[in-house]
């Protein structure tokens, strides 16, 4: 069984083809192809929905052709077409969904609309083999601490305002760091050279976290701190990362204690940050636990994760009828009925 996955909820456009060999139990999973094209706005700017949608419309045909060529398959081999239904930016989502619908009708295939967050979780589980982890989903648009229970991915805690990646990316804009390959990646590299820790607002409310206060604080004070000569840009990046990640580790640890799990799975674009993985590992090892993480191919938004989550749903008999293939900017992780897990 082969699924095509199309992802375009933010500035990454991804196309993936995944194969599940159903003759074994559990099915043997093979990644046939996983290609991506990223929209990079100029330094100092974020990606706007209209420009991002145009980027996706410009590159999607070429990307699908590349994915099919790399996998060496024809449309006949594909069983199901999976696309991101939400959450994400409306224009980019709808542009990609339009292509998914057209392909499905032309090729006479079923469609499966996938929740982006569930895509991240299922890909992380598949790659790492984590059994029943507490999931920390951290990206430019989402920050959630998630645990599976009773056919749903339950949200234990989440960001009350902006996502952690958004906080980092917007600080990268203050410093004028490039958006290529990712603003967060450039902050991470710079942070390695920093050593002086500045006291920044630390906001954890129960299981929830808040990042807008720390962003305002560092945005407002950065020019003066740098001008004083006492702190470098690297020190600011270092301090920001340490503070933000400490908040995430604290809430994740509490979720682990609550459900009695010893596994943490980190997914989402910020999940490739090695410092976050390191801090999480320190916490987990103190609890005799283990951290599971993936590299940028599967952490950062990609098509294969949509194919993976879609094909799992499809195997339980789930399809999205054409008239229900509209996209939605708001689509919570716990709205999805996880029929494929016990």
């Amino acid at each position: 069984m082969i699924a095509l996955g199309l992802e375009g909820s933010a500035n990454k456009l991804g196309v993936g083809l995944i194969k599940h060999d159903m003759s074994t139990t559990p099915p043997t999973v093979t990644i046939l192809s996983n290609v991506r094209h990223t929209y990079h706005p100029p330094p100092g700017e974020g990606f706007l929905p209209k420009d991002t949608a145009l980027h996706h419309r410009t590159f999607i045909i070429e990307l699908i052709k590349n994915a099919m060529a790399e996998a060496n398959i024809t449309p006949k081999d594909i069983d199901v077409i999976c696309f991101t239904k939400g959450p994400g930016m409306g224009g980019p989502l709808t542009s990609v969904a339009t292509v998914a619908r057209t392909l499905a009708l032309m090729w006479n295939k079923e469609l499966v609309g996938v929740n982006h967050c569930v895509g991240h979780i299922e890909m992380g589980r598949q790659i790492t083999g984590a059994e029943n982890p507490v999931v920390l989903y951290v990206s430019g648009g989402n920050t959630q601490v998630i645990a599976y229970a009773d056919k749903r991915y339950r949200i234990f805690g989440e960001a009350l305002d902006i996502a952690v990646g958004n906080c980092i990316d917007r600080f990268a804009r203050v410093l004028g760091l490039p958006n290529d390959p990712a603003p967060g990646y450039n902050v991470e590299q710079l942070a390695k050279k920093g050593s002086k820790l500045i006291d920044l607002p630390y906001t954890v409310k129960g299981m929830d976290v808040s990042f807008s206060g720390v962003l305002s604080y560092i945005e407002t004070n950065a020019p003066a701190l740098l001008a004083s000569g006492e702190y470098t840009e690297a020190d600011l990046c270092f301090s920001l990362q340490e503070t933000l990640f400490a908040m995430l580790v604290e809430t994740t640890e509490r979720a682990m204690a609550h459900i009695g799990s010893k596994e943490v799975l980190i997914v989402g674009g910020v999940g490739c940050n090695m410092r976050l993985q390191e801090m999480m590992s320190q916490m987990a090892s103190q609890r005799d636990g283990k951290v599971f993480a993936t590299d940028e191919r599967f952490c950062i938004d990609n098509g294969i994760m949509i194919a993976q989550a879609g094909i799992l749903a499809y195997q339980t008999g789930y399809t999205t009828p054409l008239e229900k293939t509209w996209c939605t900017q708001r689509f919570r992780t716990d709205e999805v009925f996880v029929a494929w897990r016990d």
């Binding site: 949608a53 052709k65 542009s95 292509v99 057209t102 032309m106």
Partner: peptide
């Protein structure tokens, strides 16, 4: 029109009829 164009481009590239 943007979406119609996307549909037309997809058909041009992938129609197997």
């Amino acid at each position: 029109l943007e979406m119609a164009q996307m549909v037309v481009n997809t058909m041009g590239a992938f129609d197997t009829e």
